[in-house]
Design a protein around this nucleic acid. Structure first.
Length: 869
DNA sequence: GCAAGGTC
C-alpha cells in the first residue's frame, strides 16, 4: 500500500474545491460522517494516496466541568479560577470519530484550515483527534498549508510550500475562549440571580453579560441617552432667492447657519439692501462617483437592512441558502478585493442572457474588461459574487430573489466604469456675504446604470457669466431648530461594531439578535434599534458602577492581550491570568456596588412580591405562592422569599389542588401551546430539587450535567412528575408510564389532561400517541403485559361507540400487544412504533435505547398508525 | 438558563 496523506479543510465545500484542484478533477468521493475525496498523487517525492475531508468549523468548545454547572451551589466568583474542559462542539456530527477513522494509519497530515487565528486553533483540534492514530514515522508528519484564496494557483502554491501550524496563534484563541467564557458566565449568572430574585417584570429569560453583546447594547443606549438629553436650539439662515432663465434658485450661504438671531438679521438687512447679487466665479469640473469595490459580508448586511429591510440574521440565512444552492459564492468574507486570478469575463458571461440585466452585461463585455476597484483582500474568501444566473421565478421571488439581485447588481457595478458627471459651481457676492449654487450634469452613468438607486441626479443650472448682476427677488431669513438624532439604524450599528472590532462578520448578526432576544432592545420601524427599559437600565447601571463594562474598549483589551500571545511576545498562561485577575477585580467591585445599579432597577421594575397572581400553595408555609408569567415564568413564595423555577414557553395552571406526597407543595400542570402540545404535572419543589438520588443524573436535573457539563438539552432542566421515580405517588412516571418511547429513550406517560382526546406523551421528546377517541375515560392500570412488560391501559369506551362485542365498555389491554387497542391508536411526530420485548416502563429498564433505528431522518406521515409500520 | 467563535 502506498503511503497515505490525510488533508483536512474547515468546511466541506473547501475540501471539495481543494480536491478538484489537486487531482485535476480525477478523484473519487465517498460519504462517511462527512465527505471524503480520494486520489493518487505525489507528495515529497513519494507516490501517495491522498484523502481530503473537512471538519465543520470548530471541533471542540470550551465549558466548565459539571460541578460548576449548578447555579445554586456555585459562587460565580469561583468561575474565574475554575478549570475548564473542552468537549466536542457538536456531538451529533461525530467529527472526532470521523477524523480518527480517516486518520488511522495515515503517514502524513496536511491542515487546510482557513488561514486566520480561528483556523490555526482548529488545526490543533484536528491534530488532537488525528495524530494519535496516525502511523508513527520519522521526520515531520504534520503540515500546514497557507493559502490566500481558493483558486487553483493559490492551492498549488500552498501545496508546494507547506509549513507547520502556528501554536502561538492557536493559543491566542484558547485564551480568548477562556476569558470570554469566564467573564461572560460569571457576570451573567450573578446579575441574573440578583435581579431575577428581586423583580418580577424584567421579561428576560436571563440577564446576560458579554464582552461583545454588552458593548453592542451600549451603542444603542448611548444613542438613546443622546436623544433624551437633546436640547433643540434655534438657528437662522439667510436665503436669497433669484430667478434666471426660467429657474427659481435658492442660494446657499457660505456661513451655512447662525445661532444668533440679531446677527443673522443684520446680515439679512445687508444683503437685502444691495438688492442684487453679483456672480464672482463660475467653475466647471468633471467629477466621478466611484464604482463599488467587491461586496463583503458586513456591507451586504448593511444594505440588506437599510435598503431591503431584511435583518442581518435573516439576511445571513437567505445568503447561506443561496450559497448552498450554488447561486452565490461563500457569504462570509471580509474581502472587498477580487484576487488577481478572479475570472471577471467568465463571471460576467453567465449573465449575458439574463432577461433583466443581460443587455447591460453584453454591452459591458463588448466594451472590454474593467478592472474592479481595489479593496481589501483579507485572504479568507473572495468577495460575494453571483455564481449562476437566475430569474425571480427560479428563486421563488421574495427575499432570496431580492438579495440575489442585489449581489448580482453589486458585482456588475464593481466591474463597470465609474459614473462621470460635470459639476458646476457658481459663486455670488451680495452685501459682503458669499453665496453659491451648484448644478450637475451626468456625462456617462457608468455603474449607476445597473445600480440605479446610486444614480447622480441631473441638476441643471442656467448659464451665468462672471461679473453679471442679478436682482434679488427676495431675501428670506429661514428659522430652523436643531433636531435630536434618531435611534441607530441596524446598518449604523453594524458600522459601529465593525469599527470597534465587536464581533466578526459571522457573529455580528448573532450579537444583534442576542440583545433583541434578551429583551434589551427591539428593532422598530425603519430597522432602528431601540433599547428597552431593561437595556437602558442595565447600561446606565454599568455606567454608574464601572463604565468599562459596557464600552467597546473591553473587547479591544482582550484582543490586544491575546495578540501578544499570537505574536509570541507573552506566555499564554501569564496573559490569561493577568486578564482574569483584571476582570475578577472588576467583578468583585461590581458585586460590591450592585446596589447602585439596583437603585435604577427599583425605579423601573416591580418587586417580586408585587408581581404575579396567587396560584398554588407552598409546601413549607402553606401560603399561596405567586405565579409570575413574565419571562422567565416562575413561582414566588413571598413569606419564604423563595423563587421556584418552572419549565418555560408554555402555560402553567393549578392541578386541581393535588399535592406532592414528598413535600406537600401543590402540584401545577404545564402545557405546551397548541393542540399537539404535551402536558405534564410537576411539583414546584421537586422540579428544582430532584428528591431522588440519581434522578437528576439520569434526567439532567437543574444545573447538573452528566455529559460533559452540557446538561441534557432543552426541557430537561428540572424533574417534573412525568420522570419522577416515586414508587407510589399516583402522578409519578412509575404510576403513569406505559411503555418506552418509539422515538427516543424516554417513556410514554398518560397525559393527565388530554381528555377527551386521550393520549400518551413522551416524557423526553415530542412524540405523542393518540389513544382511541371514543373513550370517555382511560387510565393506567397497575398490571403489566405478560409479553412486553408495558403497563396495561384501562379503557372505558363510550356506550354508543364501543368497538367491543356485545356493547361492552370496559377494556383492559396492552397498547402494543392487544390487536384491538393497537389498531385504534396513532403516533404523531413519531415515525416508528414497534413492539419491544422485555422493556416495559420504568422500574424495569425504562426505555434504554432502541433496538433498531433507521439511519435516515426523512419525514414520515406523522399520522401513520403504528400498526401500519 | 450563561460567552464568543467556527459552520450546517
Amino acid at each position: 500500500m502506498p503511503p497515505s496523506v490525510l488533508m483536512v479543510a474547515e468546511k466541506p465545500s473547501i475540501a471539495l474545491s481543494i480536491a478538484r484542484f489537486l487531482s485535476s478533477g480525477r478523484m473519487s468521493s465517498r460519504r462517511s460522517y462527512l465527505e471524503v475525496h480520494e486520489f493518487d498523487g505525489r507528495f515529497r517525492g513519494l507516490d501517495v494516496r491522498y484523502k481530503i475531508t473537512s471538519v465543520i468549523g470548530h471541533v471542540l468548545s470550551i465549558d466548565f466541568p459539571p460541578k460548576y454547572q449548578n447555579w445554586d451551589t456555585t459562587d460565580p466568583f469561583e468561575l474565574f479560577g475554575a478549570l475548564t474542559i473542552k468537549s466536542e462542539a457538536n456531538p451529533k456530527a461525530h467529527v472526532c470519530k470521523h477524523l480518527q477513522q480517516e486518520a488511522r494509519g495515515c503517514d502524513y497530515l496536511v491542515l487546510w484550515l482557513d488561514c486566520d487565528r480561528e483556523g490555526e486553533n482548529i488545526c490543533f483540534e484536528v491534530m488532537e483527534s488525528a495524530v494519535p492514530v496516525m502511523r508513527k514515522g520519522s521526520g515531520q508528519q504534520v503540515f500546514r498549508a497557507k493559502f490566500s484564496a481558493i483558486s487553483e494557483k493559490d492551492i498549488l502554491t500552498a501545496m508546494n510550500s507547506l509549513g507547520e501550524p502556528n501554536k502561538n496563534e492557536a493559543l491566542a484563541v484558547d485564551a480568548r475562549q477562556e476569558i470570554d467564557l469566564k467573564v461572560g458566565v460569571a457576570f451573567t449568572r450573578f446579575q441574573t440571580r440578583y435581579f431575577q430574585g428581586k423583580y418580577g417584570n424584567l421579561d428576560s429569560s436571563v440577564i446576560s453579560y458579554g464582552p461583545c453583546q454588552t458593548p453592542t447594547l451600549g451603542f444603542c443606549v448611548e444613542r438613546h441617552l443622546r436623544i433624551t438629553t437633546f436640547v433643540p436650539e434655534p438657528f437662522w439662515i439667510v436665503q436669497p432667492h433669484i430667478s434666471k432663465g426660467g429657474h427659481q434658485l435658492l442660494l446657499e450661504w457660505e456661513r451655512n447657519r447662525l445661532f444668533d438671531r440679531e446677527v443673522a438679521l443684520m446680515f439679512q438687512k445687508m444683503v437685502t439692501d444691495t438688492k442684487s447679487v453679483q456672480v464672482t466665479d463660475v467653475s466647471k469640473k468633471e467629477d466621478r462617483k466611484h464604482r463599488p469595490s467587491g461586496l463583503n459580508t458586513v456591507d451586504m448586511l448593511k444594505v440588506a437592512s437599510s435598503a431591503l429591510g431584511m435583518g442581518p440574521h435573516h439576511a445571513m440565512q437567505i445568503a447561506e441558502r443561496l450559497y448552498i444552492q450554488g447561486y452565490i459564492s461563500y457569504p462570509r468574507t471580509e474581502s472587498t478585493a477580487y484576487s488577481a486570478s478572479f475570472d471577471v469575463q467568465g463571471a460576467l458571461s453567465l449573465h449575458r442572457k439574463h432577461p433583466i440585466w443581460g443587455d447591460y452585461v453584453a454591452s459591458l463585455m463588448a466594451a472590454g474588461p474593467h478592472t474592479p476597484k481595489s479593496g481589501v483582500d483579507a485572504g479568507d474568501h473572495p468577495p460575494i459574487t453571483p455564481m449562476l444566473s437566475a430569474t425571480e421565478s427560479e428563486l421563488g421571488g421574495g427575499d432570496a430573489w431580492r438579495l440575489f439581485e442585489y449581489v448580482t447588481r453589486h458585482f456588475l457595478g464593481s466591474v463597470s466604469p465609474d459614473c462621470k458627471y460635470t459639476r458646476t459651481k457658481v459663486s455670488f457676492a451680495a452685501g459682503g456675504e458669499k453665496f453659491s449654487v451648484s448644478g450637475r450634469a451626468v456625462i456617462s452613468p457608468g455603474f449607476t446604470a445597473v445600480m440605479p438607486w446610486l444614480a447622480v441626479a441631473d441638476e441643471s443650472l442656467p448659464t451665468f457669466s462672471v461679473g453679471e448682476t442679478i436682482s434679488l427677488s427676495e431675501v428670506e431669513l429661514y428659522q430652523g431648530r436643531t433636531t435630536a438624532p434618531d435611534y441607530l439604524t441596524e446598518s449604523e450599528l453594524i458600522t459601529l461594531m465593525e469599527k470597534h472590532g465587536i464581533g466578526t462578520d459571522a457573529s455580528i448578526p448573532v450579537h444583534i439578535n442576542n440583545i433583541c432576544e434578551r429583551n434589551y432592545a427591539q428593532v422598530q420601524s425603519g430597522r432602528r434599534v431601540v433599547p428597552t427599559a431593561l437595556g437602558i437600565t442595565l447600561v446606565r447601571g454599568y455606567q454608574t458602577i464601572d463604565i468599562d463594562l459596557c464600552l467597546p474598549d473591553i473587547r479591544r483589551f482582550i484582543e490586544q492581550q491575546i495578540t501578544l500571545i499570537a505574536k509570541g511576545q507573552m506566555h499564554y498562561t501569564r496573559v490569561v491570568q493577568h486578564a482574569l485577575q483584571e476582570f475578577s477585580a472588576k467583578f468583585n467591585y461590581f458585586v460590591a456596588q450592585i446596589e447602585r445599579m439596583d437603585a435604577l432597577f427599583e425605579a423601573q421594575f416591580s418587586p417580586l412580591a408585587d408581581s404575579g397572581k396567587p396560584l398554588s400553595k407552598c409546601g413549607k408555609c402553606s401560603r399561596y405562592m405567586k405565579y409570575i408569567a413574565m419571562r422567565p415564568s416562575r413561582l414566588y413564595c413571598a413569606s419564604c422569599e423563595e423563587v421556584h423555577h418552572l419549565p418555560q414557553n408554555g402555560a402553567i395552571k393549578l392541578y386541581t389542588e393535588l399535592t406532592c406526597p414528598l413535600d406537600n407543595f401543590e402540584l401545577v400542570i404545564f402545557s405546551l401551546a397548541g393542540p399537539d402540545g404535551k402536558s405534564y404535572p410537576l411539583c414546584p419543589y421537586c422540579y428544582n430539587h430532584p428528591p431522588f438520588e440519581g434522578a437528576e443524573v439520569i434526567f439532567g436535573g437543574v444545573g447538573s450535567g452528566k455529559d460533559g457539563g452540557k446538561g441534557t438539552g432543552k426541557g430537561s432542566r428540572g424533574m417534573p412528575c412525568s420522570i419522577c421515580p416515586h414508587p407510589t405517588c399516583r402522578h409519578s412516571m412509575i404510576q403513569q408510564g406505559v411503555c418506552s418511547c418509539p422515538e427516543c429513550d424516554g417513556t410514554l406517560v398518560l397525559d393527565p389532561i388530554s381528555a377527551p382526546k386521550w393520549r400518551l406523551d413522551c416524557n423526553k421528546c415530542n412524540c405523542l400517541v393518540y389513544l382511541p377517541h371514543n373513550a370517555h375515560r382511560i387510565s393506567v392500570s397497575k398490571d403489566h403485559c405478560d409479553d412486553c412488560g408495558s403497563a396495561l391501559l384501562e379503557v372505558n369506551f363510550n356506550k354508543n361507540a364501543t368497538p367491543l362485542t356485545g356493547g361492552a365498555t370496559l377494556h383492559k389491554a396492552c397498547v402494543l400487544c392487544d390487536e384491538l387497542l393497537h389498531s385504534l391508536v396513532e403516533v404523531k411526530h413519531g415515525k416508528a412504533f414497534f413492539k419491544r420485548s422485555g422493556r416495559g416502563r420504568s422500574g424495569r429498564g425504562r426505555g434504554r435505547g432502541r433496538q433498531s433505528r433507521g439511519r435516515g431522518r426523512g419525514r414520515v406521515d406523522p399520522r401513520m398508525s403504528f400498526r401500519d409500520f
